[in-house]
């Protein structure tokens, strides 16, 4: 019986070398992004890790392994100064290259549509997860810095008062 998940995993596994190479070459061409200035071999290691998590996640009903991986990557990249756009673009590059591999090697028949639907779902969830993690990190960091904000505000107020007392407003 046809199981689109299993077939999808098998097809990706079979063509993973080509997929990884294409993703790495494209990422190195993403102008004005961090990815442009990363060594090919380092990209290869990163994308292999991502593919590993993707394949494992596809075996699970809730894609937990993949989404967990995405969350960790989001935290790491966010701390390294990558913008959300940049990381989402990189995930899109991966997704597009995956589609290319599938459309190249799987006949254009209904099973392909099922496979693409799975890809669509898993990457949709991944991008959603990515954005949520970025937002969550930003909110948490903001809370941690409340005292710092207050301290600077007090300093600014003090400066303002000093300036006002030095140059009192003229009466209209």
């Amino acid at each position: 019986m046809f199981d689109p998940r299993k077939d999808l995993i098998a097809t990706i596994s079979q063509h993973k070398a080509e997929l990884i190479k294409n993703v790495c070459n494209r990422l190195q061409k993403l102008e004005r992004s961090h990815y442009e200035a990363i060594d090919f071999e380092r990209h290869q290691e990163r994308e292999e890790a991502m593919l590993h998590a993707l394949l494992k996640g596809m075996e699970e009903a809730d894609y937990f392994t993949f989404l967990d991986y995405i969350e960790k990557i989001a935290g790491k990249r966010s701390n390294e100064g990558y913008s959300l756009d940049e990381v989402q673009n990189a995930v899109t590059v991966f997704e597009e290259e995956l589609w290319h591999v599938l459309t190249k090697f799987v006949p254009i028949e209904p099973p392909l549509i099922d496979m693409l639907a799975i890809c669509n779902r898993v990457f949709g969830k991944a991008k959603d997860h990515l954005a949520r993690t970025y937002l969550k990190e930003a909110v948490e960091t903001q809370k941690e810095l409340d005292d710092l904000r207050k301290r600077f505000f007090i300093y600014q107020q003090e400066q303002k008062e000093i300036a006002d007392s030095a140059h009192p407003h003229e009466a209209y």
Binding site: S78, N79, E80, G81, E137, A138, T141, Q142, E144, L145, L148, R149, F152
Partner: peptide, 14 residues
């Protein structure tokens, strides 16, 4: 660099 997120956030908040 280890606290880059807090660092960036602090720059923004101030």
């Amino acid at each position: 660099v280890d606290q880059n997120q807090q660092f960036q956030s602090a720059l923004t908040q101030l």
